[in-house]
Simulated assay, not measured.
Amino acid sequence: MSDHRRRSALRLQPRRSIWLGLLLVVIHLLAAWVLLLIPLELGPRVLLMLLVALSVGYGLWAQVLALAPWSLREATWSEQGWQLGFQNGHQREAVLLPSTLISVHLLILHFRVGWLRYAHLVLTEEVIDAELMRQLRARLRLQGARHPGR
């Protein structure tokens, strides 16, 4: 690609989102409420409630607060592709998957990191700058279709 068409790398370092954390909790509370409404015996109901509680705890710890060592903290998209940075300091090359969601107010980036490892990044204008979000959305629509996996 010629120099006049070369684009600078996009570096995404999302902030923590109170709204995404609240949404996670509300969705899990709704799941617990449904468990209370369906006719189940006490044993299976308690087990399922425990799984819902573990799920919300894990989601808050690993995704919203990004405190797990494998939590995705940074993604950089350059001419060479995607580079992901994790909480434990490791950097890995990644491939952007076609299951990535692009909408006006929400981007959900799905990555394959290595053979069996996947990572995702949920972006709103609350967690990254609105101009960076616009640039990323535009570049994904333009280059994502021409270069699958990048």
Rank of each mutant, 00 (worst) to 15 (best):
S17W: 02
S17L: 05
I18T: 15
I18W: 15
L20I: 11
G21T: 02
L22I: 15
L23K: 08
L23R: 08
V26H: 00
I27V: 15
L29D: 02
A31Y: 06
W33P: 04
W33A: 15
V34F: 13
L35E: 06
L35V: 10
L37T: 11
I38R: 12
P39M: 09
L40D: 02
E41Q: 14
E41H: 14
P44M: 07
P44N: 04
M49Y: 11
L50I: 13
L50G: 12
L50E: 05
L50W: 09
L51R: 08
L51C: 13
V52N: 08
A53T: 11
L54M: 12
L54D: 07
S55C: 10
S55K: 05
S55Y: 06
G57R: 12
G57T: 12
G57W: 12
L60K: 04
L60S: 03
W61E: 09
W61M: 08
A62M: 05
A62Q: 06
Q63S: 14
V64F: 01
L65Q: 11
A66L: 03
A66V: 05
L67H: 11
A68F: 04
A68G: 04
A68S: 13
P69N: 04
W70Q: 13
W70K: 13
W70Y: 13
S71T: 04
R73A: 01
E74I: 02
A75Y: 00
T76I: 11
T76F: 02
S78L: 03
E79R: 15
E79K: 13
E79Q: 12
Q80Y: 11
Q83A: 10
L84C: 02
L84F: 01
Q87R: 15
N88K: 09
G89I: 08
G89W: 04
Q91T: 13
Q91M: 12
R92V: 05
E93Y: 09
E93A: 13
E93H: 11
V95W: 07
V95I: 07
V95T: 10
V95C: 05
L97H: 04
L97K: 06
P98H: 03
S99A: 10
L101N: 02
S103T: 14
S103P: 00
V104W: 09
V104H: 08
H105M: 04
L106S: 03
L107G: 00
I108D: 01
I108Q: 01
L109C: 01
L109T: 01
L109R: 01
H110I: 07
F111Y: 12
W115H: 12
L116T: 12
R117T: 15
Y118H: 12
H120R: 11
L121P: 00
V122I: 11
L123W: 00
T124A: 01
I128S: 03
D129E: 10
E131V: 11
L132V: 09
R134L: 10
R134G: 07
L136E: 02
R137M: 02
A138T: 14
R139W: 09
R139S: 09
R139F: 04
L142N: 14
Q143H: 12
Q143I: 09
